[in-house]
Design a protein around this nucleic acid. Structure first.
Lengths: 355, 355
DNA sequence: TTGAAAGCGTTACCAG
DNA sequence: CTGGTAACGCTTTCAA
């Protein structure tokens, strides 16, 4: 429908300068006479030239200006989690001004990550595992072979991966201590998915050995470090409904055996626990204390203020962005673990028996 | 830190075949002897070759396999809107299996869209204006010059744009009729931002002439078509808090002058209106009826069910994805307007005076 | 079925 | 400051 776009060569010809000179104009070089520059730009305008072709530029400069974000789930699930959104926001905040774009690499129902076929067609300077476990991921193997450096948010420690994480264990331990100090002895955990296979229900040792995510594992360990072994129920997704479902399984029993406190591994799950409590007629924190993790803004919980461990999610994203930028420049940044902070809200109180 | 990646030429040399033959192997051609294929693949494995370089491939094939998603705001704001997320989900659902990736092109605080500098470095086969007005957008001009075809979701009708939209006007009219039939005469509108400049407050004629978004304009017209001119308050963002804020301005007055119904232009804003009503002690629908638009899933509104116009958001995304795919192949798909459906919930009832 | 050669549009280098 | 020329890594005719 349209004839071929003009090339830089055409512009140079029209301006009566060499191709290399015209290129200099677009690379913003100082060493080109103002008159020449104007002539080139004028010719470009006349021809409707839109600037150098990014693909050709990438081929020469060995840099595509694109970082992949491996998301693991379909967007409609992954982005329901404010943590994921804030994380990507932080990444783009850093990468955008550097002229680096973020390419979404979502999984689908079957796969917790992008297909290799999809990955292999895309020019990546680096990849960030944003909301996706990466143990035995075929996509990771492919990236390695391609020589694409990888930033793993909440990922495992590995030689060829840059880790950006938070103090999951310490944060969870602080929450557990808070509950212990309030006199809670029957505490249960509502866990985020250990891996993306749709499993929900009580977590036994076998299931636990399959855990794919650093944050899930560490948050569990943090609680156990303080309270010893506690029963845990896994949610099939990090979502309010799933938290509610898991909490019902935990709470729908006589007061004598019911937990007096629930540690949800995320604020989203905690919101579900609060809904379950309300549905079962349990007062919070009178009958039940609830804590979350993340410190995300859930305005519709008001007037309740969730007791939680606040993580610097956006800063984590920025750090991941900076790490990716460093890798692109050939540097190898250090692993980074950011602190979390205990925030005591209105959803925790003394254990019922202790009142 | 690492020696240069092996190229296809190196693989071919090692396998003792010509470069072009090796290329054939990777393009999945049938016309290569099984033995030869194995030899090439073997050599590739030995060399740790990860497949053809996508950039070089793109240069030859004149196709990058990347579609840009123009988002307009920072992700943390844009993705708070479930409509935006579902839209992108629908797009990736179609594009992913086609081997086409989605690149995020968010704006920042200052700009309602990506900078031209950013845009010009990225290889795009097409762009989708997902959640972003595009009247007098410099980025759009740049895309035109580059010859990048554009799909405009809820965008204006234009010759060089493919429009994918919904029946905004008819949907709003249906909602207005519903309210009119319930006896409401004092109706007010809480509008989504007319453009992204942080403005909030009453909408006058001057402000209204600045409207950037097709859906905002059409939804306003739909209401007026049924009820005539109605007062409208603009929210600074499509978010719950903003809806609440706008509603307070509208509702915090004596019952005699207070609207008996509020038409929010989105479910998110409607949720805010419901919160404001609760805060002001107004019963819904006893004292006030509230309608939204979109039909998004806001589980925390339960047990209330919002009266709203349900749009096929994900299908709209899929349609946008299909349109982009068609444009990449050089076809020019028709504009598409999808239907919306009135859903009567529990937030609307007879006007107080009419009871 | 395989091989040779011609680009794709640009940048980087080296002369002048 | 400007001009020539050689890559960048691959796909795609066209012959053999």
């Amino acid at each position: 429908m349209s004839r071929p776009r003009p090339t830089l060569a055409a512009v140079a010809a029209r301006a009566g300068v060499a191709l290399s000179t015209a290129s200099l104009v677009y690379s913003g070089s100082e060493r080109v006479a103002p008159g020449t520059r104007e002539r080139v730009l004028g010719a470009a305008a006349e021809l409707g030239y839109g600037g150098p072709d990014p693909v050709a530029r990438s081929l020469r400069s060995r840099r595509s200006g694109i970082v992949g974000a491996v998301v693991g789930e379909r967007l409609m699930y992954a982005f329901r989690d404010p943590v994921a959104v804030l994380l990507l926001d932080g990444i783009t905040e850093v990468l955008g001004p550097l002229g680096v774009g973020l390419l979404l690499l979502p999984g689908d129902r079957e796969r917790s990550g992008p297909s290799v076929a999809q990955l292999s067609r895309v020019p990546l300077d680096a990849a960030v595992y944003a909301t996706c476990g990466l143990e035995d991921d075929p996509a990771l193997e492919h990236l390695r072979r391609r020589g694409v450096p990888v930033v793993a948010v909440e990922g495992p420690v590995a030689d060829d991966l840059v880790l950006v994480g938070i103090e999951d264990r310490a944060g969870s331990a602080a929450l557990a201590e808070h509950l212990r100090d309030l006199g809670h002895r029957r505490v249960a955990v509502v866990a985020m998915p250990l891996r993306l296979d749709g499993t929900r229900g009580p977590v036994d040792a076998a299931r636990r050995s399959l855990v794919h995510y650093r944050d899930v594992r560490e948050r569990l360990l943090g609680v156990e470090q303080v309270l010893g072994s506690v029963p845990a129920v896994e949610a099939a997704a990090n979502a309010v409904e799933e938290g509610e479902r898991a909490a019902r399984a935990l709470l729908d029993r006589p007061a004598a055996t019911r937990p007096t406190a629930v540690v949800a591994q995320s604020d989203l799950l905690a919101a579900g626990v609060l809904r379950a409590a309300a549905a079962l007629g349990l007062a919070v924190p009178g009958d039940l204390s609830v804590v979350g993790f993340d410190g995300v803004d859930l305005p519709w919980l008001a007037p309740a203020v969730l007791t939680t461990a606040v993580q610097p999610t956006q800063e984590k994203g920025r750090a991941a962005g900076r790490a990716a930028a460093a890798l692109i420049e050939g540097r190898r940044p250090d692993d980074l673990v950011l602190p979390v902070e205990l925030r005591v809200g209105t959803t925790t109180g003394p254990a019922p028996a202790a009142r």
